[in-house]
Structures are given as C-alpha cells and as structure tokens.
C-alpha cells in the first residue's frame, strides 16, 4: 500500500495562504522521495469551496472537513476535526506551514495522533531512500539534519520552499466529511489591526535595522541619525525589539513582519535568526555590524564589521559627513 502525505491548508476569506502552497510544494517533493500519494485537508465552514478551488489548481485529492459555523481558525476545533478526518485518511506524513497558526495547530495534533514532530523545516534531502530534514538551531548558528519515523508532522519554515503553478492533466477530486459541534474551550473575542498605516518600509531604499545587540532603547537615536545620512531611508528592527515595545510593529522586518528588498540593509546587533533572515534576504547590499564574528547574519552579508555598533556608527556618521 502507498504511503500517504497530507497537507493541512491554512485559509482565510476563502483564500489559501501562500505559505500553505509552499508546504504543498514541500509535500510534493516528500511524496516523490517516499513514494507517497498526496492530499490536502481543508477544515472550516467554507471548506468545500476552497477544496474545489485547490483540487483544480493542484490536480490532487482534497478532503473537505465541513464544520458549519466554524468561520475562523480555532486550534482546538481544528485539531478535533483533523483527528476525525485522519481516522479514515491515516497519513504517514502531515505537512503544515510554520505560520503562527500552523505552529499553534500542528504540534498538539502530533501528540494527539501519536506522531513525531519537527518544526521549521528549511530543506529536505535524501539518504538511503529516506528523507532527511534540515533546520537551523541555536538562533541560526548551526544547522541540524534530522531523520524521523512516520507518522510524523512536519512544519515548514515560510519562505524556504518554492511553489510554482504547474500545468497538469490530473483532475483532482474532492471528498467531504461533515462534522457538528466542535469543542469550545477557547474563544476568539475580537481581532484588530495593530499600527495601521504605512510605515514606508517597502519604499525605503536604505534600511538601518536594529536587533537585541543594540542593548538600549536610547541607542535607537543613533540609528536614526545614521539613517539620516541617506535619502529615502528608514529605521527598522527585529521581532524581539518590537515585542519589547522599542519600535512599533509596522517597522518589524521578518517572518511575521515586513519582507523588504532595499538597495542597502544595515543590520546592527542582529544575530540573524531564521525568522529575521526570511524578511531581508532580498536586499541588494547588506552590511552587518556585530561583536560576535560567528553571528549567522554575516552569512547573509556583503560587508561584515566586527565591532561595537555604537562606536562604529558614530565613526561612520563622522566619515560620511566628511566631504573633503
């Protein structure tokens, strides 16, 4: 009997998230290595509509788990629905995009279906006809190769796998399960946009970005001063900085923030965790300043400066003002 790969689909307003399409591309690669057949699983009130759309686009089987009234993501309800669906499907490999929702959903699911779990998978290779999964560890300082026995839940790092729309001659079809009365121990009360308004990050041709290494909030003034040396520039930061309230979230570069591709990206005191790199890899020219010569940010940089950022930026500002 064939092995089975299932992709859990993240969707909103009847649209499939781009990260899920990347997870589907990963799943297709995995299906080739393991000789598996692949299907997508869609949970929600509007699961049927999305299933038809996806079956047509990918040419594969889609399982629509229709739960009337389930209009938004709810981890507990989704896990409950998926376990019911998996009772029939029995997948060997479950692939999920590692978004906030994916990480919220999938790891508890692994426990519930007695499966192993590997998060933030960035690459896949093959050894002795078995898949080998790679991901970064220790905030990007090393990479680890993992093997895992099926059944396993594999969570892909957004931005790591490419989905390209291919023409295919398979028709794909949709199977439907109807479920009623999901559990209700968690409830969404409201959802709002934070820091609405354009921060101008996407238009900036120079971005001076700060990480935890800048040590104090007051040091942001120095970054602003350095940004002032360039036209169309902006200050930005990594997620921990925004979490601490030093910068508003609309200035966050990374997986849950903005994806930028300026002419120049200057990383000050940023170690280079995968989640941050995902947002700045498209930059044309990268200069990094860090006291740790082994900081992974240097692997993504054109120019590396191993120094205290405060001393260096002061010297830089002075040198840039000197037109002699």
């Amino acid at each position: 009997m064939d092995n089975k790969v299932a992709v859990i689909v993240e969707h909103e307003n009847s649209r499939v998230s781009p990260a899920t399409l990347e997870a589907a591309a990963f799943a297709q690669e995995l299906a080739l290595i393991t000789g598996s057949i692949i299907s997508c699983v869609i949970v929600g009130g509007d699961a049927l509509e999305i299933s038809h759309q996806l079956a047509h686009e990918l040419g594969i089987t889609c399982e629509a788990v229709v739960v009337p009234g389930l209009s938004h993501y709810d981890g507990e309800a989704y896990r409950w629905a998926l376990v019911t669906c998996f009772g029939e499907l029995c997948p060997d490999w479950v692939c999920v995009a590692g978004t906030t929702q994916g990480l919220d959903l999938a790891t508890g699911l692994a426990v519930r279906i007695n499966a192993g779990c590997l998060a933030n998978v960035e690459k896949m290779g093959e050894k002795d006809h078995r898949p080998v999964f790679s991901r970064s560890l220790f905030n990007g300082k090393v990479y680890g190769d993992f093997i895992i026995e099926p059944p396993a839940v594999l969570i892909t790092q957004p931005g790591s796998f490419r989905y390209s729309q291919k023409s295919h001659d398979q028709k794909g079809h949709v199977q439907t399960i109807h479920l009623l009365d999901p559990p209700g121990n968690t409830r969404l009360i409201s959802e709002s946009r934070i820091n609405d308004g354009d921060s101008g990050l996407s238009q900036a041709s120079v971005i001076i970005s700060a990480g935890r290494g800048i040590k104090s909030r007051e040091n942001l003034a120095l970054l602003k001063q350095a940004a002032g040396m360039f036209s169309r520039s902006s200050v930005a930061g990594s997620r921990p900085l925004c979490d601490d309230g030093w910068l508003p979230y609309n200035l966050q570069v990374g997986q849950t923030g903005a994806e930028v591709s300026p002419e120049l990206y200057v990383a000050c005191g940023i170690s280079g965790a995968q989640q941050h790199l995902a947002g700045m890899r498209g930059s044309k020219f990268v200069v990094s300043i860090n006291t740790d010569p082994n900081a992974p940010i240097f692997n993504e940089s054109d120019i590396g400066i191993v120094d205290d950022f405060e001393t260096f930026l002061n010297d830089f500002i002075e040198a840039a003002q000197d037109r002699s």
Partner: peptide
C-alpha cells in the same frame, strides 16, 4: 517517536562576506 538528530553543520554563506579590518574609524 524515532526522531534523531544525525548531524550538525555550520550554515553556508549565501553571500561572500568581506570583513573590513583595522580600527573602527578606518573601517568607517
């Protein structure tokens, strides 16, 4: 669940970084 870390490697450089040398002022 049969999850094994088989090997660690250092990340590969996506860009060939050039480290500037010397005191801070010179690098600036």
């Amino acid at each position: 669940r049969g999850e094994i870390l088989t090997r660690l490697t250092y990340p590969t450089r996506r860009r060939s970084v050039r480290f500037l040398e010397g005191p801070s002022r010179q690098k600036a």
